[in-house]
Amino acid sequence: MGRWTLGASLGVLLAQSAWALQVTVMDAEGEPLEDAVVWVSGTPVAAGLSTTEFIMDQKDREFVPHVLPVPLGSRVAFPNSDSIMHHVYSFSPVKTFEIKLYKETPREPLLFDKPGVVEVGCNIHDWMLGYIIVVDGGVYAQTNAEGVAQLRAPAQATSVSVWHSRFARIGQVENHELAAAHADTEVVIRQPLKPPLQDYGVDEFDAY
């Protein structure tokens, strides 16, 4: 009974101390950036999340999703939904790996236990590119088409970390101070952005 009360009180306390933070991410021209990853460093990872198996699928010769944020210590599975083989690899220092993937033979998920940016490619289909962002915190979100990310930020949060796949220095995460305690924040990316390359559409009869 006592334990239940304590648990409930803690839950209420935590709920009260977290607040709805809205972060809008923009480029230098003030245009909203979709699909940016925004997180609060150092926040605890919810117990359920650390056991979740994240998925980066390979579908129609593309990585799906293109950007996958996962909390530190997560496991990511790489299924293959195509009828052809993929040879998935990463040379990123955060996680270096190589797996040959058949549809018929799924592999064990990989552990991502260092924070940072992992660039994933395929040695057979060289246009395939995906990113796994290992965030050092349990509070994270991706921006929508308006560049807006909604987070449940802890009371003590003073800054957010931001990353986008168009960053010219792809491994360099940016830290931005919050406007004020408990206030919505607009983030303007400091580093140069690469041009968007959304046009790498392929189909089954694109030679490789």
Partner: peptide, 13 residues
């Protein structure tokens, strides 16, 4: 020998 565009953030391969 190849220079795949997407690895170099270029539309040209």
């Amino acid at each position: 020998l190849g220079r795949p565009g997407r690895r170099f953030n270029s539309p040209h391969s």
